[in-house]
Write a protein that binds this DNA or RNA. Structure first.
Lengths: 236, 236
DNA sequence: CGCGAAATTGACCAGACTCAATTGTAGTGG
DNA sequence: CCACTACAATTGAGTCTGGTCAATTTCGCG
């Protein structure tokens, strides 16, 4: 019971992040409701490489990443792949689904998820109106991001794509200029609409130009963030 | 007053399309609320070519297309352009905005819109919970579409992009195989991440292959829809 | 150390872009 | 009705970015 209580609080807090502290959620949710919610809720763990959402399968569930990173991608019959995004803790998955899932989702690192059935999500939303609001905000943000990615995929050069990728992963904060990539070159290539060879070559070109340093295959240090941001934006 | 009533009903029906008939909406909305709503609501008209949403400007309003077609695009400082979508009657605009608009919106044909302020939208949503639901559904659908476009922009060949574009515009229905494009070759090129020359050449290649017929620059007849759909999907 | 997978590097190729010339299409005014 | 203009679209020739294919090299791990 306490565990269930914790589960529901977790869900409401971690799934929703709708501005309500988990404590206050606990206070607000009657015990019988929590029991009801718990039946729709489940915590899952996956190893790196495992697929937990399959493209074209009926979209039954909704997920929230609680730990680790995942990769979302769409596939073409001949194997061509487009990584549409990477999911980190706190992100929602399955929203884009309308009938069937439109993408594959695979664990990039050991992954922990919270799963909610569609029905459970509806229940949650009716109980926490802020959740629906939060989801709408989240979806809007995702749409903005998607537009930026269309610009990247449709109009940017390889150099600009890599610069965009690096600055994006360095985050907005000026704090840390060393980024550790949890994904392979293949993932990066499929994310940027390039080949692994081009990613490798372009990364080395940026290194030769003194813009980055490649400590390790997965560890990159940004030496001149402003210049990279300028390249990313398409500045001459 | 009657006009206002009509405006609000129009808004609730046309903006929301949330499963509630406008008649019943009229019945449900008290007159004082309608007056309140009307202050947040406005009908606008634009001529072809006019811009009504400017990238990077504060996102004050939310729009619904009621008549005509619009073009959404993002720009790079040097003028490179990516058309992220075309909006037709019934579509929402401005959802993707989070603080500032992330795109430009321009009338492609004479255009009629319904404008709602952000505050008015909040008010509407609190009065019609179905509206928020409807917006979330819409956003989810848009996200799915966006993923498909990322695949197109990142991984498809020019031929596949054109085939995708044509079948997409022919709609799902098997009814009509003649499509009339309300946009220029430049718009198509910027939508597909190609140049106008490549669009023109590829279109003629499809014509030579007996897959389409180009009655007029803007009027295209699909002669072999299944084949086009196969190409669009990347079938060998 | 040694194996297999991932990443890098090089040589070559091709699909799409660029630049330029030509043709076609609306729209305008004589 | 027909030039005439301005712009959109097509067509052609040549180039270049990024892809393909193949050979090493490096990394991760038992």
């Amino acid at each position: 019971m306490l565990l269930r209580h914790h589960d529901a609080a977790n869900l409401a807090a971690e799934c929703a992040r709708c501005g309500v502290r988990s404590a206050s959620v606990c206070a607000v949710v009657p015990d019988e409701d929590i029991e009801q919610l718990a039946t729709y809720t489940q915590h899952l763990e996956f190893e790196a490489g495992q697929t937990f959402i399959n493209q074209d399968e009926p979209a039954e569930d909704f997920f929230v990443v609680t730990e680790g990173h995942a990769r979302l991608c769409t596939l073409m019959p001949d194997g061509r792949r487009q990584v549409t995004g990477f999911a980190s803790p706190g992100q929602f998955l399955g929203l884009a689904a309308d009938g069937n899932y439109a993408f594959n989702a695979e664990a990039l690192t050991p992954l922990k998820l919270c799963r909610v059935t569609r029905h459970g999500l509806k229940l949650l939303m009716s109980q926490f109106p802020q959740l629906e609001q939060r989801l709408l905000t989240e979806a809007s943000r995702e749409l903005s991001v998607a537009q930026g990615r269309m610009l990247l995929l449709g109009r940017k050069t390889a150099r600009e794509r890599l610069a965009s990728f690096l600055t994006e992963h360095a985050g907005m904060a000026a704090c840390r200029d060393v980024i550790v990539l949890p994904m392979t070159r293949t993932d990066i290539a499929d994310y940027l609409g390039l080949t692994i060879e081009t990613v490798s070559r372009t990364l080395n070109a940026l290194r030769r130009d003194g813009l980055i340093e490649i400590d390790h295959v997965t560890r990159i240090r940004l030496l001149d963030r402003p210049a990279l941001e300028d390249i990313a934006a398409g500045g001459a």
